[in-house]
């Protein structure tokens, strides 16, 4: 597989030469393979949001390179608009970007900008709306009449409908109730499964990310702390917790058990897997005891 996103020594400094100068992204080298679902975590101010805005050319790096699909996006002659159709970003609280009279028109804004004809636009809007769980009756309503969760879906659909090769979502579940969070995450997962595109999911919550992601990127103070598969990342759960990030509760339980001297694996991050691990452990203990008795 080839890397769809690659950054080389990416550095970005806000307000250079003023007392507010701040390096938000520091020397980030990253390679994301095609088709991955990457969870990006890091606490507020760790540079997650700044990093993702580099990936579609909204921010020009202070130094370093951004390579999308084998193409350096800041090379001469590259049309950034094409890059933006290739790398779709859904920002935090995306419902604040809604502006059209009807839900249909708002979702169609991106595809229309791509220069698709009416028929293709219509198809894409309907298809995406169905995927994200928007009833077709809603399409002719004003987006401003919808509930918060539905508005959020409209905004996400607006980017999904462009069918980008890479879809980046910045905290797509922020401010939703638990039911809504679960649904939106499930829909994103469904989108990833069906389209086979690369998805980057920025989140505060390890728990959300851990269940879905094929890989996890942990950011700390503008640098990459680690980028690996979830089991390998959660092996370092203690370090991650020290950075002030919440690790899944079940991982915490297991790390406490290990501290008590129980020899149990540390890469547990889902309840199902925890159950399996405990059963295995008990089984192995049981057989060990039997061995001892004999």
């Amino acid at each position: 597989m080839s890397a769809i996103i690659r950054t080389e020594n990416l550095t970005y400094t806000y307000s250079p030469d003023t007392p507010f100068e701040k390096t938000a992204v520091n020397d980030v080298c990253l390679e994301v393979e095609d088709g991955e679902l990457v969870g990006i975590i890091g606490h507020t101010g760790s540079g997650k949001s700044t990093l993702i805005q580099h990936l579609n050319g909204l921010i020009r790096p202070t130094s370093g390179r951004v390579i999308i699909d084998g193409q350096d996006i800041w090379e001469k002659g590259v049309n950034l608009r094409d890059i933006r159709f290739k790398v779709g970003i859904v920002f935090q609280y995306p419902e604040y970007q809604i502006f059209e009279e009807t839900v249909f028109k708002d979702i169609a804004y991106g595809p229309k900008n791509m220069g698709l004809d009416e028929k293709q636009v219509g198809e894409r809007v309907r298809e995406t709306a169905a995927l994200i769980g928007l009833d077709s009756a809603l399409l002719e309503k004003s987006p401003f009449e919808l509930s918060g969760g539905q508005k959020r879906r409209v905004a996400i659909a607006g980017v999904m409908a462009m069918r980008p090769k890479v879809l980046i979502l910045d905290e797509p579940t922020a401010g939703l109730d638990p039911g809504g969070r679960e649904q939106v995450l499930e829909e994103i997962r469904e989108y990833h499964r069906r389209s086979g595109s690369t998805v980057l999911l920025v989140s505060h919550s390890m728990e959300d990310v851990a269940r879905f992601a094929t890989k996890i990127l942990v950011m700390n103070h503008g640098s990459v702390f680690c980028y690996d598969t979830p089991p390998n990342v959660f092996m370092r759960a203690d370090e991650i917790a020290e950075m002030g990030l919440s690790v899944p509760q079940i991982t915490r339980v297991f790390s406490l058990l290990r501290k008590k001297g129980i020899d149990i694996r540390g890469d547990v991050y889902t309840v199902d897997f925890a159950l399996k691990t405990i059963n295995e452990y008990i089984a192995s203990k049981g057989s060990a005891r039997e061995d001892g008795h004999d």
């Binding site: 608009r81 933006r84 159709f85 970003i89 604040y96 991106g110 980017v159």
Partner: peptide, 13 residues
Amino acid sequence: DKIMSAQKARGAE
């Protein structure tokens, strides 16, 4: 700034 970024991400010129 945020809204501009969001619309640019959707291909606004």
